[in-house]
């Protein structure tokens, strides 16, 4: 565990908490893509199956359980409890166009052709693009609430911090995983445009509004 990894995990955790609290406090999930949330649930489910057969540390186990629970909790809030506030007309991204290529790629490019390994690889590929429905929703409505922007910023920072963690681990521990690194870079790049808007607008107290 290094500082980048810890900050990355905390940023990820904070993103998930921000989202849950936002939905709970405002009693609304307007502006949030349920499609992205479904993709994240698929990501965590397929990646954390190793909860069953591998124990790494109490930290690792607890975080995995929290991510899974928060992810399914968010889906429950969006699709059941506050369904009436869900922006279904704008959340039109076709997630099969992300799931299918991620699955095919995981079958072709992986570390070992074993069920758990392929599912882990699939989760890494899918996570890298899972935010696209959310970014698509923001671009369709042309704006995002500040709290949604903070959520997106924390979620984007998480994988960016992981990249620093991987650089550190390469030098300090001779450890690297090309699949995770390449997918992590793709994931972070997808947020770049948003990062720019966040820093130039939201941090200066303005609403995140896209040019018409």
């Amino acid at each position: 565990m290094n500082i980048f990894r810890l900050l990355g995990d905390l940023s990820h955790l904070l993103a998930i908490i921000i989202l849950l609290v936002k939905i709970w406090k405002t009693r609304s999930c307007a502006g949030i893509s349920g499609k992205s949330q479904i993709l994240f649930a698929v990501v965590y489910t397929s990646r954390y199956l190793d909860l069953i057969n591998a124990f790494i540390s109490p930290y690792n186990t607890i975080m995995k359980i929290v991510f899974l629970a928060a992810s399914y909790g968010t889906i429950y809030l969006m699709y059941m409890k506050f369904k009436a506030t869900y922006d279904v007309n704008h959340d039109t991204f076709r997630i099969e166009f992300l799931i299918a290529p991620a699955a095919v790629l995981a079958l072709i490019v992986n570390h070992a052709f074993e069920p758990l390994e392929i599912l882990w690889t699939f989760s890494i590929y899918l996570e890298s693009v899972a935010i696209l429905p959310q970014l698509f929703l923001v671009s369709k409505t042309g704006e995002a609430e500040s709290i949604t922007s903070h959520y997106l910023f924390m979620l984007g920072s998480y994988r960016a911090l992981y990249i620093f963690n991987w650089i550190y681990r390469y030098y300090a521990e001779n450890h690297y995983d090309l699949i995770a690194i390449v997918a992590g870079i793709v994931q972070t790049v997808l947020y770049c445009d948003f990062f720019y808007l966040y820093i130039t607008k939201v941090l200066k107290g303005k609403k995140l509004q896209l040019p018409a």
Partner: peptide, 10 residues
């Protein structure tokens, strides 16, 4: 170089 010996990341 150890490639992905243990998946200890989240």
């Amino acid at each position: 170089i150890v490639i992905n010996e243990i998946k200890d990341e989240l």
